[in-house]
Amino acid sequence: MSHKTLWDISPVVAPDSPIFPGDEPYALRWTARLSPQCPVNLSAVTLSPHVGAHADAPLHYADDAPSAAEVALDPYLGPCRVIHAIDCGPLIRIEHLAHAEANLPPRVLVRCNRQADTVWNPDFTAYAPETVEWLAARGVRLIGLDTPSVDPASSKTLDSHQRLLRLDLRVLENLVLDEVPEGDYELIALPLKLAGACASPVRAVLRAL
């Protein structure tokens, strides 16, 4: 049986992972180590759920909205299109995606970077709110990108996040699409069932159809 090609589109989560200023970095400590008295190594981790590849829950941008444990899993699993909009500027606009509009699947990931940032860069590409609307009108239920947020780092109104809320879309941020050709794939990026959390880390992968 032949194995389908797999693309790992998740960055390594490490203490030096780029994060929004003020966010909780990843840290690991050992609570037990292998020894004659102890049969295992045991670690404990602390981190913001927005470190690395992650799925924002609606709770991130609205009170009384679903947490990471409460979102339906369907949007995070299934046919997906990767669209290239490399070096498109501050915002992904409709004209950057129109060339790949035909028969859009319910999930769209946009590659903005030639190479994913490994240090914090506030000048990352985000989604124009009208692009979120345009995708939703074409049946898209999940959007994603290879930068930290669908809104600019300086935004206080989070217009694209608010579009996600109103249109009931899901989102994946901080993906790594450096090696992924434009085209159609199967997406697998399930959030953890974290009670009360505003987001969840995901191990996001794409599989050849």
Rank of each mutant, 00 (worst) to 15 (best):
S2A: 15
H3C: 10
W7P: 02
W7S: 07
S10F: 06
S10E: 05
A14R: 15
P15H: 12
P18S: 12
I19R: 08
P25Q: 14
P25Y: 07
A27L: 14
A27M: 13
R29Q: 11
W30V: 04
T31E: 14
T31F: 05
A32E: 15
R33L: 10
L34H: 13
S35D: 13
S35R: 10
V40A: 13
V40P: 02
V40Y: 11
V40D: 07
S43P: 06
S43K: 12
S48K: 02
H50M: 14
V51G: 02
G52S: 13
A53K: 01
A57Y: 00
P58W: 00
P58A: 12
L59E: 00
H60Y: 11
Y61I: 06
A65I: 04
P66I: 14
A68V: 01
A68H: 01
A69P: 05
V71D: 02
V71Y: 03
V71F: 06
A72R: 13
L73W: 07
L73V: 11
D74P: 00
P75I: 06
L77G: 00
L77W: 09
L77H: 09
L77S: 09
L77I: 09
G78M: 10
G78I: 09
G78D: 13
R81V: 03
V82F: 07
I83A: 04
H84C: 09
C88M: 05
C88R: 00
C88A: 08
G89F: 01
G89A: 06
L91T: 04
L91H: 06
R93N: 13
R93L: 15
R93I: 02
L97P: 00
L97G: 01
A100P: 08
E101L: 09
N103D: 15
N103C: 12
P105L: 00
P106C: 04
P106S: 15
V108F: 05
R111G: 02
N113W: 01
R114P: 01
D117F: 11
T118F: 09
V119D: 12
N121Y: 06
T125W: 04
Y127K: 02
P129Q: 08
E130C: 05
E130G: 03
T131P: 08
W134L: 09
L135S: 02
L135V: 10
A136W: 06
R138P: 10
G139R: 03
V140Y: 02
V140H: 04
L142D: 04
G144S: 01
L145V: 06
L145C: 12
D146M: 00
D146C: 01
P148S: 13
S149N: 05
D151W: 04
P152R: 15
A153K: 07
S154M: 07
S155M: 11
K156L: 11
T157W: 05
D159H: 10
S160H: 01
R166C: 08
L167F: 08
L167C: 10
D168G: 07
L169E: 00
L175Q: 00
L177V: 04
E182M: 11
E182V: 13
L187F: 03
I188S: 07
I188E: 07
A189C: 09
L190P: 00
L190Y: 01
L192W: 04
K193H: 12
K193S: 10
K193Q: 10
G196P: 03
S200N: 09
V202D: 01
A204Y: 03
A204P: 03
V205I: 15
L206V: 11
R207T: 13
R207E: 09
A208C: 11
